[in-house]
Design a protein around this nucleic acid. Structure first.
Length: 447
RNA sequence: CGGGGCGUAGCGCAGCCUGGUAGCGCAUCUGCUUUGGGAGCAGAGGGCCGUUGGUUCGAAUCCAGCCGCCCCGACCA
């Protein structure tokens, strides 16, 4: 799981492109290709190259942290599933052509999983027999395949994609709401930690009904759906609300507050309600990208799949479930959509492939090399992720590459600065440059 | 799944209309000069022109099929 803390660009694989490959239309796709993060293998299917893969893993890790925090435990289910499992739930026929069906050498019908409700329900059915074993929550982070008619926008809508899907199991719908709320709170936190403003919006619950489905949408010009919301919602400091997930009442209050503001995608938008509830100066309409979807569906799968537990009075009841998805690979693109400028990507620090990019302006100059090596070693010793550009190339190329890949901090060390005992520290986000002693720069980066 | 477009060097493209030994820029390699925001000069390498078939003395170019990819719409984490 651990990411290597430091790399030298002279030995790293990061094939940056000066020109944009012609297939890429939207900004995140263009930048991911130009930054050498991914390579397309087939429509909607990508290889993840070193920098791209690092970002993917950083996002995964944030998701893990937040799942662990609410007592949701990681498992790993296979990508290949048996058709029989899906026949039990009735979805084998319903899913249609989006499901990739395959046959093994014994002519057994298999499929590449588009999701895992059936499998996790089957696991629970076998092992959970009593209401005393509930509640339980589990998740996994696994590749999914949905044979979209038209994959597009790079990793934002691939056919193969990495998803975190969590599942909750409770004895009653009331208990189910508590699990749902825990996930809701975890979602608020995990997106905030990635530097994103993800807005929870009521989603269509379909035949189940009720108010227990939300989509999490981040705002981006190239988003696929139109959204309307109250700007007050964007001001909430979600990370510092300090919610105790063991306190059901407090969680419920917080979620009540967050969901009290008007926020809707086009499929749920009610113009009259919007005009009535949201003051004119707080109205905002924008484009959004769905980066998560949570859903309570009761016994939809547990009933047909016979996942029952014995209750306190000795009778049997199907477990009550919900599922909670985060599009992990989609988030890589979505974050770039929300965080870039004309020169390239501007990573939020928590998901950046490296925190610091160290640029040696004159490789081969003894003093300059020594100063860079020293700084590089000290960053590593302090546990700071660093990419050291020790390639023997012109300054302009290094600056352009570093801006393109978007590491939050750039440390520029050149012969002139070395002679005067200073390095330059640049913030990718603000573009501000400071000339500092190496010690002062290091202190800022380690903090 | 409906509509549109594109496959020529690693990337971006020209050539195709009007058939006659495949070109430009960037990248790569060599040398020299340069060196704080994508350097200059000189030289070099690299192509089954997506694929199959047809027309023709001759096809990147014309015709047909197939494959792949992209865009717009309807659908999805």
């Amino acid at each position: 799981m651990r990411l290597s803390p430091a790399v030298r660009l002279s030995e790293y694989f990061m094939p940056t492109l000066r020109e944009t490959p012609s297939e890429a239309e939207i900004v995140s796709h263009r930048l991911m290709l130009r930054a050498g993060m991914i390579r397309q293998e087939s429509a909607g299917i990508y290889s993840w190259l070193p920098t791209g893969y690092r970002v993917l893993r950083k996002i995964e890790q944030i998701v893990r942290d937040e799942m662990d925090r609410i007592g949701c435990h990681e498992v790993l289910m296979p990508t290949i599933q048996s058709a029989d499992l899906w026949r039990k739930s009735g979805r084998y026929e319903d899913y249609g052509k989006e499901m990739l069906r395959i046959t093994d050498r014994h002519e057994r019908e298999m499929l590449y999983g588009p999701t895992n409700e059936e499998m996790i329900t089957d696991i629970v059915a076998e092992h959970i027999k009593s209401y005393k074993d509930l509640p339980r929550m589990m998740y996994h982070i696994q590749w999914k395949f949905r044979d979209e008619v038209r994959p597009r926008f790079g990793v934002m809508r691939g056919r193969e994609f990495l998803m975190k899907d969590a599942y909750s199991f409770d004895i009653s719908p009331e208990a189910g709401r508590i699990s749902y709320n825990k996930q809701f709170v975890a979602y608020l936190r995990l997106y905030a930690r990635m530097g994103l403003k993800a807005i929870p919006m009521a989603a269509d619950t379909g035949p189940i009904g009720g108010d227990m489905s939300h989509e999490f949408i981040i705002l981006a010009e190239t988003g696929e759906s139109q959204v309307w919301c109250n700007t007050d919602l964007l001001e909430l400091d979600l990370l510092n609300m300090d919610i105790d997930h063991r306190n059901a009442e407090q969680m419920s209050d917080v979620i009540g507050k967050v969901t009290s503001y008007y926020a809707a995608t086009d499929e749920m938008h009610d113009e009259a309600k919007y005009q009535a509830e949201v003051p004119a100066d707080k109205q905002m309409t924008a484009r959004g990208v769905e980066v998560g979807h949570i859903f309570f569906f009761g016994d939809k799968y547990s009933a047909p799949m016979n996942a029952k537990v014995q209750t306190a009075d000795g009778s049997f009841a199907p477990v009550q479930s919900g599922s909670y998805g985060v599009g992990v690979s989609r988030l890589v693109g979505a974050i770039i959509e929300a965080c870039h400028d004309d020169n390239g990507i501007v990573w939020p620090e928590e998901v950046a492939p490296f925190k610091v990019g160290l640029i040696n302006l004159r490789v081969g100059d003894e003093a300059c090399d020594a100063a860079c090596e020293d700084f590089y070693a000290k960053l590593q010793a302090a546990g700071v992720d660093v990419m050291y550009d020790d390639r023997d190339m012109r300054a302009g190329v290094k600056f352009a590459d570093m801006d393109l890949i978007g590491l939050p901090w750039q440390v520029v060390i050149g012969p002139k600065g070395v002679a005067n005992g200073i390095v330059e520290l640049k913030s990718r986000k603000t573009g501000e440059k400071e000339e500092l002693s190496p010690e002062a720069a290091l202190a800022k980066l380690v903090g």
